[in-house]
């Protein structure tokens, strides 16, 4: 039986994000570790935001996929540290987001220590429109349909679109 099962990591990597189903959990960068010890699979995931409600759904989907693949003993753990950043979204994930009409985040790099500067005026951000490619786009709302997305509009094709905001 063991020999016929697909590798646990491969199964876990194919599970999709419940809120951004164009991405797998691996694309999103929330799948942190998969270890198999004997019959037991331990999967570690990380939340995008502290209050992300999708984290429980992700755990349930992982358990369901691994159980269907023949793993009876599956545990999913949520780990906070180090904190998730949008920089962990893979290149493949960024391409899939753009293809689905969602602008991917820009790279933010590591945060500096010390006081965090206030940003009173949103810096001009070059977020190209995922539909027509125009760079003339404006933010409508910093907070969108899920914690990780902002709402923007293209000033050329006039279409609104979502943007995975940098974290």
């Amino acid at each position: 039986m063991t020999a016929a099962r697909p590798a646990a990591r491969a199964v876990a990597e194919r599970v999709r994000d419940p809120e951004l189903p164009v991405l797998t959990l691996a694309d999103l960068g929330v799948l942190r570790d998969v270890t198999v010890t004997g019959e037991r699979v331990l999967v570690t995931i990380t939340p995008t935001y502290s209050g992300c409600p999708a984290i429980d759904e992700m755990g349930a989907d992982l358990r369901r996929a691994l159980t269907a693949a023949g793993y009876a003993d599956v545990e999913v753990r949520t780990s906070l540290h180090p904190a998730w950043t949008t920089d962990w979204i893979t290149d493949d994930g960024r391409r899939k987001l753009a293809e689905a009409g969602i602008a991917p985040p820009q790279r933010v790099g590591p945060r500096a220590a010390g006081p965090i500067p206030l940003t009173l005026t949103p810096p001009p951000q070059r977020v190209p429109c995922p539909r027509c490619g125009s760079s003339r786009t404006a933010e409508l709302s910093r907070f969108g349909s899920t914690p990780c997305k902002a709402l923007r509009r293209c000033e050329d094709c006039a279409e609104p679109f979502e943007h995975v905001k940098e974290l």
Partner: peptide
Amino acid sequence: TGFTEPLAGI
């Protein structure tokens, strides 16, 4: 539900 180990790995 499902949030039983929020501090795992720390």
